[in-house]
Amino acid sequence: MTSVRSDARFAPTGPAPAPRPDRRRRVGRRRPWRRALRRDWQLYSLAVLPLLFFLVFRYLPMLGNVIAFRRFRPGGSVFGEYWTGLRYFRLFFTDPTFWDVFTNTLVLGALTLLFCFPLPIVLALLLNEVRSRVLRRFVQSVSYLPHFLSIVIVAAMVMQLLSVDGTVNQVVGAFGGQPVPFIQEPGWFRSIYVSSEVWQTVGWGTILYLAALTTIDGDLYEAARIDGANRWRQTWHVMLPGIRPTMMTLLILNIGTFMAVGFEKILLLYNPLTYPTADVISTYLYRVGIVSGNLSYAAAIGLFEAVIGLTLVLSANGISRRAVGTSLW
């Protein structure tokens, strides 16, 4: 090993050094890790703290999911006391509340996908048609704004607007209706949730599409025009195919968050009166686990949810790769 460059620190960051004479290359091949460590130890040392973070706060909790299969005692071991097998899974599979919240999760997830995925595309296409740069910039800047707000602020605004004396009820009143206590009505929760979600995300969601639209080759429009395509046809045959990779990537990512439907927002917006439509898996496991202290039971539900989420991403990614050749990795 003495033949390894002792002045290694002089070339620690560039690309791999050019091939060395034979003897050294053999050493490098036989002990590649040792050599890499010797050359790049400073780089590796920079990775230690971040790796510690991932290990402790990302991977340890993944292992911590074993409490879904073990009896957990508060104050006891993080990994539980003794094995219980699938007891907690059987418990929630036979728990009628679980199936209610499961259905709610699917419905809210589907509605969110149905509105929050296509609307940014529509808005981006509309913005793209605005001739005046100043005007377009202005609309963009305004529409990005809600993205920067805390969910607490958004929830608080929703409650103010929908309160009995709020704007929406003023409109209802102007048409001669009786004030509706929207926040207390289960029948309104889904509309409220989805529209507040659209309000907060639609503008920001246009960024990537607008960027993709600017990269479309101008000749394609020209060719389409020569073929007699009007504006609408150009949108359909040139613009949409042009942003398809972006669309697919965002669709896959959206599907990935399908099961996790805006947990924090629901937690802020719902109340016992609206549980029949508003309670989703994540809020249910929050109440069962953290409020009532059945941590093992809640961990089982959480693990189930996470596995479904991962399966959804992987299958969406697989389908997309095969069908249109776009994939996340």
Binding site: G14, P15, A16, P32, W33, A36, D40, L43, A47, L51, F54, V56, F57, R58, Y59, L60, P61, M62, L63, G64, N65, I67, F72, V78, G256, S282, L285, Y286, G289, I290, L295, A298, A299, G302, L303, E305, A306, G309, L310, V313, W329
Partner: peptide, 29 residues
């Protein structure tokens, strides 16, 4: 790019985008 084990280091980070421990184990931790 030349760093040995770089792909694994990237993978360690990227995997956590798609799978997380979840609320309860994090809370316990």
């Amino acid at each position: 790019k030349h760093l040995r084990g770089r792909t694994a280091l990237v993978g360690i980070a990227v995997f956590t985008m798609f799978f997380t421990g979840g609320l309860i184990p994090n809370y316990v931790l």
